[in-house]
């Protein structure tokens, strides 16, 4: 894949998209910047692959668009009624038709091979060092750390009028998900009410939380993101406040994570319910409990 041509293409695109600072979120934070034209900074092994793959796709697609647009421009100039008053009557050219069928097939095979490699890489979960359970609710997230003291807390968006200076609007939450860097993290996702989607662009994690199901994926945050906050937003329409249930991960070193879990066990011990419940709909609490329990058993 990495021939000179591709490298040149990537460099070209890198130059183009560096306008608007491609990978530059604000210091200490991983989120998009104003006028950003490219993907967010990759902070996991999967994300690195996906960003590189997308750059390859963009090279191929840009060349195709330039080729077709070039043909269209040529046609418009050369074959307009003034320049070419007498039309040809050609309606068949077998070789040409074979070429424009076979060449796209070859290009698509060239795309499919790396695509499927990345797909299987993103899906095959390495031996996990810890597990994070994510539960979607209307309209906040519940996080549970089963391997680190089994504590649970909710994470809600801070409304605009309560933000402190420097906190980004619609992204800041009351309790961040604290996760260690350089650790294989198994993610288990489900929902208490409707479908949501737990999405972190810079980790290339995007998976629905669906009631009655537990979805599984993984991530691993690079060391250099220790101390940084990684942002995401709910990515499946989940009702009135769909746009107002952000995700904020604080990546920390392993040592800091150990210390934080000890503290968190105390902080979140008292008010954490045994099973996260839908707050707004008291009448169906029992059903919800059974639903989550059943889903766990089925797994």
């Amino acid at each position: 894949m990495r021939n000179k041509f591709m490298t040149f293409g990537l460099a070209l695109i890198g130059a183009v998209v560096s306008f608007g600072s491609a990978f530059a979120g604000p210091a200490g934070e991983v989120r998009s910047a104003p006028w950003q034209m490219w993907l967010q900074e990759p902070a996991s092994p999967t994300a690195e692959r996906i960003v590189a793959f997308n750059a390859q796709l963009l090279v191929i697609e840009t060349l195709i668009v330039i080729f077709v647009l070039g043909l269209m421009a040529y046609i418009a100039v050369r074959f307009n009624a003034k320049r070419n008053p007498v039309p040809s009557k050609t309606t068949h050219h077998t070789m040409l038709e074979v070429v424009w069928t076979v060449v796209p097939i070859l290009i698509l095979v060239g795309i499919a091979v790396p695509s499927l490699k990345h797909l299987y890489f993103a899906d095959s979960i390495p031996e996990a060092d810890m597990t994070l359970k994510v539960t979607g609710n209307q309209w906040y997230w519940t996080y549970n750390y089963p391997d680190n003291g089994d504590f649970t807390f909710d994470s809600l968006m801070i409304p605009e009028d309560e933000l402190k200076a420097g906190q980004p609007r619609l992204l800041t939450v009351d309790n961040k998900v604290v996760l260690p860097v350089e650790t294989n993290i198994r993610l288990l996702l489900t929902s208490n009410d409707v479908n949501h989607n737990w999405a972190l662009p810079s980790l290339s994690v995007k998976l629905d939380t669906i009631p009655g199901r537990i979805n599984e994926t993984w991530t691993r945050i690079h060391e250099k993101y220790a101390g940084k906050t990684i942002y995401g937003m709910c990515s499946e329409l989940c009702g009135v406040n769909h746009g107002f249930m952000p995700i904020a991960i604080l990546a920390v070193s392993k040592e800091e994570f150990e210390a934080w879990t000890k503290q968190a066990q105390q902080t979140f011990a008292s008010d954490a319910p045994p099973v996260p419940m839908t707050r707004d709909i008291a009448a169906i609490d029992n059903v919800e409990t059974v639903r989550v329990a059943d889903a766990s058993a089925a797994r």
Partner: peptide, 20 residues
């Protein structure tokens, strides 16, 4: 570009970075 930068669909308001 907004999509590449991560802006979700079907939201009535968005983080300020997507304003441009």
């Amino acid at each position: 570009f907004a999509g590449l930068a991560g802006m979700p669909r079907r939201i009535p308001d968005y983080p300020d970075a997507y304003a441009g």
